[in-house]
Design a protein around this nucleic acid. Structure first.
Lengths: 224, 224
DNA sequence: GCCGACGGTCACAATCGCGTCACATGCCCG
DNA sequence: CGGGCATGTGACGCGATTGTGACCGTCGGC
C-alpha cells in the first residue's frame, strides 16, 4: 500500500493528529499558513478547516493549488455548517470535496483510507489481501474468496483494522480507538458485540473462525 | 482512456478551468491570443469563445489551424447567440463545430467526453466497458449486455462517472461536481433521487443492484 | 402558445446501524 | 467443586440516514 501524505489544519489537526501514529501507514505533516510546510513525495490529500486562526480555509486551498508540490492534492474542506454558498466557494477555491463538521472521526478515517486506496488513476486501487480475505478500502468492501462479505460499516472497519494487524492481540481499547470512536465513550463490552457480529458475518461467508478470543486481553485475527 | 488536450479561452476558461483537475484525465492548457501556449502531444480539442478581449474567435481558429502543433485539433467555437451567419463564418475559419452560449457546463462536459471518445485516430478508447456495461460516450448512450439502457441525460452522466470510477466510494459532492452542476447549488439530497432513478433504469434492464449505498459517505458502483 | 419531458426539491415513511442491557454460558482458580 | 469474573448473544429502542412518490418550475419542440 502506497503511502499518502496527509495534511490537517486547525481543529482537525488536533482531532486526528494524535490518532495517525505508530502503525498507520501515513506520512504525516502539518500545514500552517506560513509555518513549516513539510512536503513529501507521492499523492497528497489534505483536510482543511474552513475556519482557522489566521488564515481562511479558502486561502489555504488556493495556496495548496498554487504550490507545484501540492497542486494535484485531493483537498477536502471541512465546513462548520451546511452552507451552500460556502460549498461553492470552497470548490471554486480548489477544494475537491467537502464535509460538514463537527467531524466524525470514524467517517474521516473511512474517507482517508478510501482516498489512499483509490488515489491516483483508478485501477491501481490498492487492495489488502490476507489469505482468502480481500479488503478493498476504496470501495469500502471486503470479500472472502472473491465473494462479497455482508458487513455493516462498523464491522468493515473492524475487519479492516484486523487485517492491518493480523496475528496480533488487539485490546478492546485498541479496537475502539481504531474505529475512531470517542464520543460518547464506548463501553468496552460493546466490542464483544462487534466481534460477535463480525464473526457471524465471516461464518456466513464460509470463512470459519478467524477471530480468536484472548481471555482478559482482547482478540486476534488469525491469518493462519 | 487516453488523455486529451483541451484548450479553453476567455470566459469558458474561467468556467471550466477550476473543474478540470484532480481525477479528470485531461491534460489541460490555456490558450491565449499571444500568451503562453502550452501544447502537449496527442489529440487536441479546443473550445474557443466567439468574443474575446483582444482577438476574435475567428482569428483564434485560423491561428490554431495555421499552427502545425494544433492544425489537427478539433475546434468548437462558442457563439454568444444563435446566428446562422456567424456559424458559417466560424466553420469557414476552421472550426469543426459550434455551440451556443451561455454555456452549460454539463453540456460542455458531454461534448468534451464525446470528443474524447471519438477523437481523431480510431482505436482510441471509443468505448468504456465494465462487465456487461458499455458506455459509448461519443454516442451518449449506455448499454447493458448489448441492450440500450433507457437513461435520461442526467442518469447517463451519472452512470458514466460511476463507470469511470468503479468500486470507489463517491460522495454526493463528487457526483454533483462530476455532473458539472454548480448553479444553482444542488442540494445533496437530490443525488439520492438521481441514484434512485438510475437504479430503477438499471434494474429495468436486468442489471440488478449495481449501485451500493455507503451510509454517511456516498455511493459505489460495484463492477462485479 | 401548448404540451410533454426532464430535473430539482420536499416531506414522509421505512429502514438501518448501533450502543446497551440482560441473561446464558464458559472458563479459571482456589 | 464452587464462586466469580469474562465472554457470547438475542432483544430492544433511539436516531440518523435514505428511498421514493408527488409536486412543480423550466425548457424545448411542434
Amino acid at each position: 500500500m502506497q503511502a499518502i501524505n496527509i495534511f490537517l489544519t486547525g481543529r482537525l489537526g488536533e482531532t486526528l493528529e494524535d490518532f495517525m501514529h505508530g502503525e498507520t501507514r501515513y506520512a504525516f505533516g502539518s500545514l500552517y499558513p506560513d509555518g513549516p510546510h513539510r512536503v513529501v513525495e507521492g499523492p497528497v490529500c489534505a483536510f482543511v478547516d474552513w475556519v482557522m486562526d489566521d488564515l481562511s480555509g479558502l486561502e489555504m486551498c488556493r495556496r495548496l493549488r498554487a504550490d507545484p508540490r501540492t497542486e494535484d492534492a485531493h483537498i477536502t474542506i471541512v465546513l462548520e455548517e451546511d452552507d451552500a454558498a460556502d460549498k461553492r466557494r470552497a470548490l471554486k477555491a480548489g477544494a475537491d470535496d467537502y464535509m460538514v463538521g463537527p467531524l466524525d472521526r470514524t467517517l474521516v478515517l473511512d474517507r482517508v483510507m478510501a482516498l489512499q486506496a483509490g488515489c491516483g488513476q483508478p485501477g491501481i486501487a490498492e487492495r489488502l489481501e490476507l489469505g482468502e480475505l480481500t479488503i478493498d478500502a476504496a470501495a469500502l468492501q471486503a470479500r472472502w474468496a472473491g465473494e462479497p462479505l455482508d458487513l455493516r460499516p462498523n464491522e468493515f472497519r473492524l475487519l479492516r483494522f484486523f487485517a492491518q494487524n493480523p496475528d496480533r492481540v488487539l485490546t478492546r481499547a485498541d479496537l475502539i480507538e481504531a474505529l475512531g470512536k470517542q464520543e460518547p465513550p464506548i463501553d468496552e463490552r460493546t466490542v464483544d458485540v462487534w466481534i460477535g457480529r463480525l464473526r457471524k458475518a465471516l461464518r456466513a461467508a464460509g470463512a470459519g473462525e478467524r477471530v480468536r478470543t484472548v481471555r482478559s486481553l482482547g482478540y486476534v485475527y488469525d491469518s493462519r
